[in-house]
């Protein structure tokens, strides 16, 4: 087992900017000198279905997928989706949860209930759980779509990479028009 390989699993719902966030994370790790592999599933999953993206980094990475019980940080962009992927976390794995609810179709129809106790349940089983309301923070900063950058900022405080590397990649990843806003909210997340 490649002990020196670390895994971040980003999960949520199609359209939340997960792929973009995992691309930025991967580039940062590459710049920081790691070998990196990343994997997610495209195609039908984009139509509002579940999305999950594995990012793995270390001196040499073979598998782009982590096995169950091997993920260091689970970053969930939607509350309910966190529960679907808990089996991938290490016993001492960390969880970042965006306090956003996106109803699955069966909940919209009134056939299912959206679980009410998600955060309590996770806190009962994992020690390091952080809940952020990235959507509200992004709205306050002027654009709902920046919530993924805020979450990335929060994640950055869990990884020992200096801000300069993040800044460099952020600058390459966003158009000049939206760059400053994204850098600002990234810092908000990093300090959260």
């Amino acid at each position: 087992m490649s002990e020196s390989v670390r895994s971040v699993l980003l999960v949520g719902v199609g359209g939340q900017g997960i792929i973009r966030a995992s691309d930025i994370l991967s580039l940062v790790m590459m710049r920081a000198g790691f070998d990196v592999k990343k994997s997610e599933v495209h195609g039908m999953a984009q139509r509002g279905g579940c999305v999950s993206s594995n990012v793995r980094f270390g001196p040499k990475v073979y598998s782009p997928l982590a096995k169950k019980g091997d993920v260091d940080v689970l970053v969930s962009f939607e509350k309910l989706e966190t529960l679907r992927y808990l089996e991938y976390l290490k016993a001492d794995g960390k969880v970042i949860i965006n306090d956003e609810v996106v109803n699955p179709p069966s909940v919209n129809l009134g056939d299912d209930l959206y679980p009410a106790d998600t955060v309590d349940f996770i806190k009962k089983h994992f020690k390091d759980v952080k809940v952020v309301d990235a959507t509200k923070m992004a709205l306050r900063s002027g654009d709902r779509r920046m919530s993924n950058t805020i979450i990335l900022g929060v994640l950055s405080s869990y990884l020992d990479i200096e801000y300069g590397v993040w800044e460099e990649v952020l600058e390459e990843s966003f158009s000049p028009k939206i760059l400053e806003g994204n850098k600002e909210v990234f810092k908000l997340g990093r300090e959260e």
Binding site: G49, K67, G69, L80, S106, V107, F126
Partner: peptide
């Protein structure tokens, strides 16, 4: 790993919960 060792690979044991599915949907 399971194929070679015969041991199941699992994460932390958690109480079973049934979660609403989230299939893709028309936009």
């Amino acid at each position: 790993e399971t194929g070679v060792t015969g041991n199941r690979v699992e994460g932390v044991e958690l109480p079973v919960r049934s979660l609403p599915q989230r299939p893709p949907n028309l936009c």
